[in-house]
Amino acid sequence: MIEVQNLTKFYNDFCAVDRISLTIPKGEILGLLGPNGAGKTTTLRMLTGYFKPTQGTIKVKDLLMPDDTIKIKSLIGYLPESAPLYYNMLVYDYLEYVAKIKGIDTEEKRLERFKELSKLCGLSGIMDKPISTLSKGLKQRVGLAHAMMTDPEILILDEPTSGLDPNQIAEIRDIIKAIGKEKTIVFSTHILSEAEATCDRIAIINKGKIVAHDSTKNLKQSVKKDSIIRLTLCDAPEDEALALLKNISPELEIKPVPSASKEEASFEITTLNEHDLRKDIYLAVKKTDWILTELNKETQALEKIFQDLTREDA
């Protein structure tokens, strides 16, 4: 669907995006991950034709940038970061303007589409309000309606959930998942759990370069070995508990962590092998008269990869 080759962007002497190559097949959700200033927004802006690349080619379907830029633009729905809209317009007027520019030419078709969009994006109560009076989340929804106006085949969303409250984040994610079934979606974020929950594939960008690019599953598996177990015991003296844990396997890395109350002792156990230790821990604790209140395995796969690949000194 989208083919990007050797995409490069220089701002004067500063190289914001450095020879990025990506292929995004139809019907896939690609998450663009990276720390602030990694070049995510610049990449997306080049994909949408807002910025001209210094070098490299962008091919959407059989259309090539920059010759068919306008045709490509009509295939893409784009939600810029923080959804900049015309603040003095009413939501309805704004959507009508966008619909007209995007070529929905009759009043009936427009009304029909507005009804669908207002259901999908939850705009029904705010159609008659000026955009300037809307909260950030509502503006984001108007922006999303703007992007999806003509039911485009490709959606490009730049940090669609930044600055939203948890409910709104969940709603936007649901929308992305719902429409992602039949559309190609590229979105950027720096929230890892979000990418993990919604994306089929993830590309991690750092300093303008792609440092990892694989399906979400593969990425997570590549560091599966490293997991952390959180254990909290009630009525257990700390040193005795430590001794017990050491007994299970001597090469465990055990770190006591401050617990919520005095009767409880909490530990973080880092394991290096794939064997699930929770069984052993449970069986060991069962033999004592301590009470097990927490036994939780956290796989930090994405965080780990992300930190390894994007940390300054890495």
Partner: peptide
């Protein structure tokens, strides 16, 4: 200044 220029330029208009 507002940023809507980006919205405008990514619409299919020349």
């Amino acid at each position: 200044n507002v940023g809507s220029y980006e919205t405008l330029l990514t619409l299919p208009v020349s």
